[in-house]
Design a protein around this nucleic acid. Structure first.
Lengths: 251, 251
DNA sequence: TAGTGGTCTAGACCACGGA
DNA sequence: CCGTGGTCTAGACCACTAG
């Protein structure tokens, strides 16, 4: 069964069964799940789908846009539309304070970082108050794209007082390993997790479609002596990450 | 400054500064953040915006669709487009096992439930294995839309062995309160959190746009004696919920 | 250079909501 | 009833990719 045959509208298109783009999207989902369109295979060009199904290209695009947003397919300008391989999900604990690099190493995944910003900067109002910075105290900032197993996984933007991390350029792979070396490894953190639709810039860096759901995480971590060590805001790919927490009945 | 003046394209539209729908979306975001369009105010009709900006309605719709997806505005067929009130975010702990109802009560929010399914059913394969059901053992299922302070907050689908909850119809508000009464309150749980784009059915129930980011949570909870008490899959509104976890350095 | 997805238009009809 | 958003079309041009 070729996809061209599979899309011939006589067999599935039902006048009056809801919007046509919804029906087409469902049909394409079926094709993917049934194996008519295996992972990494290419879909017919939009114009051809429009032709086969007797729909306009705008309508076809609307159906495909939803699949892109779901993460089911990927569109590359000038090249075509392709079924995405479902990426293996990675789990991260929400009770143990671990380092991304160390965490991934334990799973046997290579990690790399693309540096987007790294250095010493004038702090924002928020950083001054959250990190308890003194007057004229600068802040170390590290902004990077973290990848594991060749896949972009998260955007991480960390801010630390210079008293904790005097030289941000020392950080090459693991921030926590660097902090450990200079005796400033955090022992406790508060983390806030929410879901957002990724905006275009971020989505592009993470190699997902604009509007894809991601996890936004704000972490505030503390040294043993109670000093704030780090304020980090991260965006994780929703399709690649699960956070796992263990809960106890509160006394 | 009226919104009509604010949208006159002479002042902001820049030929060659990216797609027009992006420029229009940005301009509308500005209008909302600057107060030209206060919360709950109505936007001009799509056709009128198209007229003012000298764009086609399709392009205007594309810009507005993104705002809908961001949760910035809301469109009501036959009525119009409106600026959404930013809903206060609710925080839920990821270290203490609490009940939704009790949690909200503590914040002074009234909770209500819309029952979508409640009763005794034949278990799925997954339920049999996860809940350790015996042959011919049925399962109690509770599926409901949870609201707090008049706002839909989450969709919750719980499955419990009948040995834990013999009569699901007893559950009127708080599942955990009911379990407490019959001596089956869970003391521990494992929770898995991920981000997804909400599909149309779910989005509609939660009163957000299709494709909006939501938090998917799977919770497996246990009684004191180690028996599995409950398998719950929930979808939380991403714009209304933050999950908060406290992390410790793992030994 | 040919073929792909990305953007954009003008115009049509439908479905729903409120006066 | 009218005005709103929702769906849909045919056709155009641009931007990018690959052979």
């Amino acid at each position: 069964m070729t996809i061209t045959e599979f899309l011939k509208p006589d067999s599935w298109f039902d006048q009056g069964a809801g919007p046509r783009y919804v029906q087409l999207r469902r049909r394409l989902e079926e094709a993917i799940h049934s194996g008519v369109l295996p992972p990494n295979s290419s879909l017919p060009p939009e114009r051809e789908i429009a032709d086969i199904t007797d729909l306009s290209r705008v309508t076809v695009r609307k159906a495909m846009h939803e699949l892109v947003q779901q993460g089911a397919i990927e569109q590359r300008q000038g090249s075509g539309s392709f079924v995405r391989e479902s990426t293996a999900r990675v789990e991260q604990s929400l009770s143990h304070l671990t380092s991304f690099t160390e965490d991934m190493q334990q799973r046997g995944l290579e990690t790399t970082s693309k540096w987007l910003e790294r250095g010493v900067f004038l702090p924002t109002e928020e950083e001054i108050s959250v990190l308890s910075l003194g007057d004229d105290e600068s802040v170390a900032r590290i902004y990077r794209l973290r990848e594991a197993g060749g896949q972009p996984m998260a955007l991480e933007r960390a801010a630390l007082p210079l008293s904790i991390l005097p030289n941000p350029l020392e950080v090459t792979t693991s921030l926590y390993a660097t902090l450990d070396q200079i005796g400033h490894r955090p022992v406790r953190a508060i983390q806030k997790i929410s879901a957002i639709n990724l905006e275009s810039t971020e989505a592009e860096l993470l190699n997902v479609a604009e509007g894809t759901a991601g996890l936004r995480i704000q972490r505030l971590s503390f040294l043993e002596d109670g000093r704030v060590a780090e304020l980090t805001r991260s965006l994780y790919r929703g399709d690649a990450y699960d956070f796992v927490a263990e809960l106890q009945l509160s006394g």
